[in-house]
């Protein structure tokens, strides 16, 4: 395959970037998208040029580090798939591929396609946990949790924190990310204790980071690699409204 690319290049956070043209011949359709970028980087290296910086690590769709806008879509043309799980067979010979970083004010670009997603860490820091210290835990089976509840909690907890939901959202809203953690923990009896404090603090932090409002377009669910349901957003709204009403 012969592939043309327009890729966002930006030296650093202070720099203004631009789209540059690249070309790659002999791309194997079985290559993963990131392997294609590796190949392009090898080519750039041979020419003595700076490699294209992009986030990636596990390359099996679970660490959540990779993520870029490919042809105007978060993680590329496939739904519910991380960038690393995308393969070149999803493109055609001669295609021009546009590659840009995930964009949001809360996710500043650091270099080329690399972005700073520490805002997510701070949202979790604000309350995305159960306050239990090491060594205090009671016997695991002392709290039975119904199979459907455990499964529902898992569905929410499966979030990999890649930020595609923010990238695809027209308002750069982080409610899918935040609500997944709120729902995961509120569903479990051990997490319910702090439910009200948690949701208030996490929403406060989410706003402080500069994410936008949710318009319920549901684009986030369509792109989420873990298919986190938008119903979690409703659940978070419910918990938040409850917490605000019952606040002392």
């Amino acid at each position: 395959m012969h592939i043309r690319m327009k890729i966002w290049r930006q030296e650093s956070g202070q720099d203004t970037g631009k789209m540059l043209d690249y070309e790659l011949a002999d791309v194997n359709p079985d290559m993963s998208f990131l392997e294609m970028l590796d190949m392009l980087n090898e080519q750039l290296l041979e020419q003595g040029q700076r490699a294209i910086e992009f986030d990636h690590d596990c390359r099996e769709g679970i660490c959540g580090q990779c993520g870029m806008m490919i042809n105007g879509r978060a993680h590329g043309p496939l739904k519910n798939t991380t960038t690393c799980q995308l393969h070149m067979r999803s493109f055609r010979d001669g295609d021009t591929i546009y590659i840009e970083p995930f964009r949001a004010t809360a996710f500043p670009v650091k270099c080329d396609l690399k972005i700073d997603r520490s805002a997510f860490d701070r949202v979790i820091q604000a309350g995305g946990y159960i306050s239990v210290n090491t060594g205090q835990a009671p016997e695991a089976n002392s709290i039975p949790i119904g199979h459907p509840v455990a499964e529902a909690a898992f569905d929410a907890a499966a979030c990999i924190g890649c930020g595609a939901c923010v990238a695809v959202c027209k308002n750069s809203s982080a409610v899918l990310f935040t609500s997944a953690k709120v729902t995961h923990l509120v569903l479990l009896p051990q997490g319910e204790v702090e439910a009200q404090e948690r949701v208030r603090h996490m929403v406060d932090q989410m706003d402080a980071e500069g994410f936008g409002h949710c318009s319920n377009t549901e684009a986030c669910e369509a792109e989420c690699p873990q298919q986190i349901s938008v119903l979690h957003i409703a659940r978070m709204n419910w918990e938040y409204n409850k917490a605000q009403l019952l606040k002392k």
């Binding site: 946990y129 835990a137 455990a150 907890a157």
Partner: peptide, 11 residues
């Protein structure tokens, strides 16, 4: 410990 932290093990 993990259950107390909210790890959703299969049940």
């Amino acid at each position: 410990q993990a259950v107390a932290q909210g790890v959703p093990f299969g049940r």
